[in-house]
């Protein structure tokens, strides 16, 4: 599986995620959240940055189910799902990820038929890779 090729702006996201914490870059001056991370605030042009914890609750904004041809590691798991999650506290902050049955479960663990746009999901960290994953919210 591909690992994220991390740039300086994005590094804190991955560091926090590996610790089981979901944080989003925010402007230290005007407070606006932004994603993906970048050096400067597009609202007030401040270079001040902070990493704000978010609840990790979100909703499925959209999803796809890739089929081959794919890179070999992914072809082995296909069909699997990829989702875009919008965060409940900031719907314009959307994160790409996989909806899985539990922390550390593979990307094809949850059948695509069970995914719906608007479904409530929750952030977990993959204990092996440290990457964010998403699990269905118990309703």
């Amino acid at each position: 599986m591909l690992s994220p090729v991390i740039d300086p702006e994005g590094a804190p996201f991955w560091r926090y995620a590996a610790q089981g914490e979901l944080r989003v870059q925010a402007c230290a001056d005007c407070g606006e959240l932004r994603f993906p991370p970048r050096p400067c605030c597009p609202h007030c042009r401040s270079f001040g940055i902070e990493w704000r914890p978010v609840s990790g609750h979100g909703r499925v904004w959209s999803y796809v189910v890739p089929h081959p041809p794919l890179l070999p590691d992914y072809a082995e798991r296909a069909p699997y799902n990829v989702i875009v999650v919008e965060l409940v506290e900031a719907p314009h902050i959307r994160l790409v990820g996989n909806l899985v049955t539990g922390p550390g479960a593979p990307i094809d663990s949850l059948p695509a038929e069970r995914i719906r746009i608007g479904a409530r999901v929750r952030f977990v960290a993959d204990p092996a890779s440290g990457l964010p994953q998403w699990v269905p919210e118990r309703s």
């Binding site: 591909l2 994220p4 994603f35 990829v82």
Partner: peptide, 27 residues
């Protein structure tokens, strides 16, 4: 393919242009 912003998408298996556009299409 992997440098920014692909770090936010490709590790999860959103690999190809068709996957990226399919996401917008579904929505």
């Amino acid at each position: 393919q992997l440098p920014t912003p692909a770090q936010w998408t490709r590790p999860y298996g959103l690999l190809r242009p068709v996957d990226e556009i399919a996401m917008l299409t579904r929505r």
